[in-house]
Computed example of a mutant assay.
Amino acid sequence: MTTDPKRRNDPFKGEPFTHESLDHAEFGLLLPAPGDPALPADRHTLLKEHLMDEITRTAPAPARPRLRRTAWIALPVAATLVAGAVAIGQWGPGAGAHEDVRAGGATAEPEVLRLEPGTTEGLPAAVERISLAAAKQPALEPRADQFIYVESKVSFLRSENNNGEEKNWITPLHQRQIWKSPDGTKGFLYEPGHGLIDKKGEDLDDGEHGTGDNRHSYNSVKALPTDPEALLKRLYQGGKPGDHDADWMAFKEIGQLLQEQIAPPSTSAALYEAAARIPGVTLVDKTVDAAGRPGIAIAFTIGDKRKEWVFDKNTYDYLGQREVLLKAAYGMEPGTVTGQTTVVRRAVVDAKKELPDGRKV
C-alpha cells in the first residue's frame, strides 16, 4: 500500500498504481498539458482503469525498471507477471515499488475482518467532525529547499505466476519512509527488504525521463481551492456526479492527495467536505487501522473491494487507508484486508534521508 505518481503512475510502464489525469483546462495545477489522443483524455483514462481492474496481471518486465512515483499508497491496479516473477497486486505501495522474486518476498497471514456495512446515515455529521479536526491541525510549511517526511506502516497484496500457476499473498506490515521536495521533483524512498529496493534506499529525483507531472506535490496541493464545490468540480475532470466511474475517479484522486503528503489544514478540510458530496461514498462506523486503533471510515465500493480512509473514532484525526475484499477473490475470502497503511509521522526536514530528530538513515 504505499504510493506515488510521475512516469510512476502508468501501469503500462510497469507501475503498480494508476493515477488518473485531471483535466488541464479546468485544473492546470494538477496536470501538464495533454496531448491529442484518439479518445478524450478522461475516456482514455477510464478505459485504462477498467482494463487494469479486470485483468489483475499484465505484461512481462524483462529487466528491472527504475520505478518511481510520488504519492500514497494505494489504488486498484493489476500487474502482469512473467513465469516465476512477482508483482504488486490490487493494492500496492507508491514510489519505488518493484517486482521481486518470490523467494525474497515475505508473507503474512491475511487479516480477515468482519465486514461492517457502509451507510449514508450519519455521513454528513461524521465528515463535519473530520473536517473540523483537520482544520485545527498545526500547519507544516516547508521551504523550497526542505523536504516533506512521511513515515508509514504498510502492507499490500502481491501475486506470482509460475508457469501458469497463480499464487497471491499479503506482505507483512513493514516500515516505509519517504522524503519529497515541495515541488515534487526530488525525493528518496527507504523501504529495505521489500521489492527490489536497495537496502540503502532509492533516489526519486526527476531525471531525463521525468514527466514533470507533479500534481500531488505539496505546491500543487497548497494551490488547490478550499471551496468544496469548486474543488470537487475540478476533481471530476469533466465527469458527472452519479456516473460510478467518474465518482470513483474523484474519490480516488482525493485519496491520492491524502497519501504521503502534507497539506494546509484548510485544504485538508475542503478535501473531506468534497468527498462527502460524491455519490456512493458511505460511512463505515466500525473499523481499525493497520496499527489496530479503532476508527470510523469514509469508504467507496468499486467492484469486489471497498476502499476506506480511516479516522480515529474519538479525535477524528486521519490514521490511514485500507482496502477490503467484499467478495472472494485471489483465493481469499470476503473481509480480507488486501492493502493497508497507517501514518506514523509527518514532518518537515532539511535534507533527504534526514529524520525529524536530526539523525540520518
Rank of each mutant, 00 (worst) to 15 (best):
G94I: 04
H209T: 14
Y236S: 00
P192Y: 03
P192D: 03
Q175D: 09
L224M: 07
Y316Q: 01
T119E: 01
H24M: 05
D213G: 04
E165H: 15
I170S: 01
L258C: 05
T45L: 03
Y190I: 12
P138Y: 01
L30S: 05
K313Y: 07
P142V: 03
S21H: 06
H174F: 05
S21Y: 02
T107M: 06
Q237G: 04
G320D: 00
G96I: 05
K167M: 11
E323C: 13
P60E: 09
A135H: 03
L132N: 12
P16H: 02
L196I: 08
L47I: 15
R43H: 13
E141V: 10
D183H: 09
R143M: 07
N9Q: 13
A263I: 15
D205G: 14
A38S: 15
I73C: 10
G187D: 01
D203P: 10
K186M: 06
N9R: 13
A38M: 15
E99L: 08
L231E: 00
L224A: 04
K200N: 15
P225F: 04
P241A: 02
E116R: 14
F27C: 14
D183I: 11
Q90Y: 10
I88F: 12
N214C: 15
E151Q: 10
Q137G: 04
R306H: 07
P356T: 02
G14D: 00
T2A: 07
N314G: 03
H98R: 12
